[in-house]
Design a protein around this nucleic acid. Structure first.
Lengths: 322, 322
DNA sequence: TCAAAAGTGTTATCCTTACACCCATGT
DNA sequence: ACATGGGTGTAAGGATAACACTTTTGA
């Protein structure tokens, strides 16, 4: 059976990268294209030329954006037929390998614009930013979801009823909001036909009578799905690997670090405990400098202690409540 | 740039599944082929026929093994040229999408053998089973790794020096063994040319003079790499999702549950604390029955409480030390 | 002097880990 | 009776979350 090489169907493979930077309080994602038709940097995987996906990815990112990315991580490979269709597509089957890449905003600013630019990622996921309290857009989303739940036919292999999915992913009925479930929320909205991509793909219908506006800025192909995966992964990874520092300048204050984490997590953290957490885990060390403050007492500058990678097995910022 | 559909290179996509079952104390993996040339169940992704990877996977698994798998999860997509070569291959570029699937041993026994069979997974990774103390094979591995570290030329993009990689992944020099780093250990052995696959691929040389035996049973193509990924993922996932129960019969004793977790984790856990952990998290409930013991007091039977999936956000067995 | 942000101290609570011990059964 | 595995109690230590409070600057 698996003794000899299988004859395999020829399919096209595309790489797509969610390239993230943070500017003060705003998480940014690199996009290109016209408004209303934005897309992630992407390109074909050129097998003969590139030995690995990552080499191919770095190559075309450099070409398309003149940007150097540091940290790169594979996210997921999406192969659902119909989910990467462009509006006027004859639909050849394309498989997308999604990647997460992190870069510093200083590097990002230095890039000569090749047509690509950074946009705030909450433009695409306005319901994911809880830093100013519960997002108002949920007032539109939840009623529409509930209307859909009433008429949704039970999906064949589905583990949960629509009502349960809503409760678990959107934290209704007393269930807490889990900031890591970005992808699950996006997929639920897709199933419910509440976002432009699902209407475009034509696989789900809006509840009859309900003519809700599509929610959040859409993207080409399945790129918003890849971005949702990237945010989920990044929010989770923050807690057990020191990836934030890939987004920070060499020197920073603890408040700047906290703002960055909050920007990614989409919620506020408890100040005092965050400081203790960071200092206690020896992830950073003071440089001795102080920042020429921004309104208030000057803050001590810190730098990332690269040594922790050598010392401790899985260092991250295991921030919890608040 | 990403405005119109890219022309994408045509490449072949293969799906490969690491199908896991547990028989008492032994984690099993489904393989086929002759000894010395074993492989995972695998097949081409048939784009026109199957709407998603998962549908395609379930299909060919059913065809090749007459086995029903329950839980299925995508692991990683491997695209490195040269790493899936068979010995007499003319090397068309093949991309492997690796999957993890879990099944119950009762189901597994009922399968009519289609040529596939279950093998203990520690046959492929003898250094990963610490249940009877430190594996003796490390007496062979570590000297060979250290010999390689001395002569290894510093890799271009490498984050750590060879010596550091050895210390972090194999827990030398006082660093604790981290059972989740299965893939990192495998990749290190591959880099060091200590396993059959790297010699076969011809990309790394054994240290001259050192003619060490290749370590562990090899597999076709990059299948052992996929299995390493599967074990890593499963060991990690145990701790935050209730996946063990996919491998258990409907009713079981707490000791059987612990043995299963230990079989996967490759180490022993503290008995009393494990019991409290499991009972405390309300993951299981007593059935009222008692098992017709195996030497000693009869044990109460338990079943998995499916409701926890609805109640709590991320229930798993966060077992720690011991 | 007051607002704003940095930074410190302390306490209550929970979870993890470890140790010690008792219970029910077969041989 | 005793070996074997099942099952319970409890205390020490550490991490977390919440609270109140002091310090240093610019306007």
């Amino acid at each position: 059976m698996a003794n000899e090489q299988h004859p395999r169907t020829a399919i096209e493979i595309g790489l797509a990268a969610a390239i993230v930077a943070i500017d003060a309080d705003t998480p940014l994602i690199l996009v290109s294209g016209a408004d209303g038709n934005l897309g992630l940097p992407s390109g074909p995987f050129d097998a003969p030329e590139h030995r690995t996906f990552e080499i191919g990815l770095r190559r075309f990112v450099a070409e398309q954006t003149a940007l150097e990315v540091g940290y790169v991580e594979q996210l997921y490979t999406f192969g659902d037929r119909g989910r990467q269709a462009s509006p006027h597509d004859t639909a050849p089957h394309v498989v997308s390998v999604g990647y997460l890449a992190l870069t510093r905003v200083a590097t990002a600013r230095a890039m000569k614009s090749h047509g690509a630019r950074f946009e705030p990622w909450y433009k695409f996921f306005p319901w994911e930013d809880w830093r100013d309290g519960r997002p108002k857009i949920l007032e539109n989303i939840l009623p529409a979801l509930n209307a859909w739940a009433k008429i949704a036919k039970p999906a064949p292999g589905a583990e949960f009823a629509p009502r349960e999915r809503i409760r678990l992913t959107f934290g209704t009925e007393g269930t807490p909001w889990d900031e890591e479930r970005v992808l699950e929320r996006y997929e639920l909205l897709y199933s419910a036909g509440l976002i432009a991509e699902s209407r475009r793909d034509g696989r789900e219908k809006t509840p009859p009578g309900e003519k809700t506006d599509a929610i959040g800025e859409p993207m080409q192909f399945d790129h918003r799905r890849i971005l949702a995966t990237a945010i989920s992964r990044l929010r989770a990874k923050l807690k057990y690997r020191p990836v934030v520092f890939e987004l920070m300048p060499d020197e920073f204050t603890l408040t700047e670090l906290q703002r960055t984490v909050e920007a990614i997590a989409g919620r506020h953290l408890h100040k005092q405990n965050f400081r203790r957490l960071v200092e206690g885990t020896a992830l950073v060390e003071p440089t001795g400098e102080v920042s020429t403050h921004t309104g208030g007492r000057p803050a001590a500058m810190y730098r990332f202690r690269r040594e922790v990678l050598r010392e401790r097995p899985a260092p991250g910022l295991r921030f919890g409540g608040r």
